[in-house]
Simulated assay, not measured.
Amino acid sequence: MPVSRIAVGSASEVGQADVLKAGLAEFFSMLIFVFAGEGAGMAFNKLTDNGSTTPSGLVQASLAHGFALFVAVAVGANISGGHVNPAVTFGAFLGGNITLARSFMYWVAQLAGSVVACLLLKFATGGMTTSAFSLSSGVSVWNALVFEIVMTFGLVYTVYATAVDPKKGNIGIIAPMAIGFIVGANILAGGAFDGASMNPAVSFGPAVVSWTWDDHWVYWLGPFIGAAIAAFAYDYVFMSNTHEALPSTDF
């Protein structure tokens, strides 16, 4: 069972040079991702005079986030694994692929990267609002929770299949592209309902800078539940006999 491989790690691990470098890589990857994704949304609002969400706007958001995530994952892959998402880190932790201590460093870096990206956007645009994620009219928090669970399940399942599974072979080369594609596709599916976050850090940065917290818990609980289901499902069903243990230095 994956749960038997969960590793807590130690406080000293957080101060190791490779962990600090990995955390810094996650910070920059998240900054790149949020600046491009949130910035594209702000640009659309400026061009449409803050018009309501339209089909073209949804496609624009899908492309911007898909392309930006492809790059953000690729540039961080060789240093931190290119998680660029606290839910992905949580899924990796539950599968025994990263310690809790390292996960904590990743979470702090990811959240900080998102906040800094939104602050930079606010300054660069002359004070434009960094719009926090919100539910569309007629969408309840439970509807949105299901959306976030299912969409994040698809994302983390894709991460496991293309990046984590030791049997991935050459498919690992296209992991950043596959991860970007599934996020872009999910935005087309759920963007008109709850914004399709799938990423607590992406929701956190705009919420902090705009200080808007309505239904914010949905964008944490949903992704973490979806990530947990994907991690246990893929690890237990497809990797149970092939898992490579963490190096002892990670404990």
Rank of each mutant, 00 (worst) to 15 (best):
M1F: 07
P2M: 02
R5V: 02
R5C: 09
G9F: 12
Q16M: 10
L20C: 15
K21A: 14
L24A: 15
F27T: 08
L31H: 00
F35R: 01
A36H: 04
A36K: 00
G37W: 05
G39C: 05
A40P: 00
G41C: 02
F44G: 07
N45F: 12
N45H: 12
N45S: 15
K46Y: 05
K46I: 05
T48N: 06
D49I: 05
D49H: 12
S52G: 11
T53E: 14
T53I: 12
T53R: 15
T54P: 08
P55Y: 00
P55H: 08
L58S: 04
L58M: 12
Q60A: 15
A61R: 11
S62I: 07
L63A: 14
G66Q: 09
F67D: 05
F67R: 02
A68C: 01
V71L: 10
V73A: 02
V73N: 01
A74E: 09
G81N: 11
N85L: 05
N85M: 09
P86K: 06
A87K: 11
A87E: 14
F93D: 01
L94D: 11
G95V: 02
I98Q: 06
T99Y: 03
F104S: 11
V108E: 03
V108K: 06
L111K: 02
A112K: 03
A112N: 06
S114V: 03
V116M: 06
A117N: 07
A117Y: 08
L120D: 03
L121D: 10
L121N: 13
K122L: 09
F123P: 00
G126L: 10
G126W: 08
M128R: 14
T129R: 09
T130A: 04
T130M: 07
S131K: 15
S134D: 08
S134C: 02
L135W: 11
S136K: 07
S136G: 13
S137Y: 05
S137L: 09
V139W: 10
S140I: 02
N143Q: 07
N143S: 06
L145C: 08
I149W: 01
T152S: 11
T152E: 11
F153M: 07
T158D: 05
V159T: 03
V159L: 13
A161K: 14
A163Q: 13
D165R: 10
D165A: 10
P166M: 12
K168V: 14
K168C: 11
G169S: 13
I171D: 10
I174E: 06
A178F: 00
A178D: 08
G180R: 01
F181C: 13
F181H: 03
V183L: 13
V183Q: 06
V183E: 07
G184W: 08
A185Y: 11
I187C: 10
A189V: 12
G190Y: 09
G190S: 03
G191Y: 04
D194G: 09
A196Y: 04
M198P: 07
P200K: 11
V202L: 14
F204D: 12
G205T: 03
G205D: 04
S210W: 10
S210Q: 08
W213A: 05
W213N: 05
W217H: 02
V218H: 08
G226F: 05
A228C: 08
I229L: 09
V237W: 12
V237P: 05
M239C: 10
S240P: 01
N241Y: 04
H243S: 11
H243G: 01
H243R: 14
E244A: 08
D250C: 11
D250E: 15
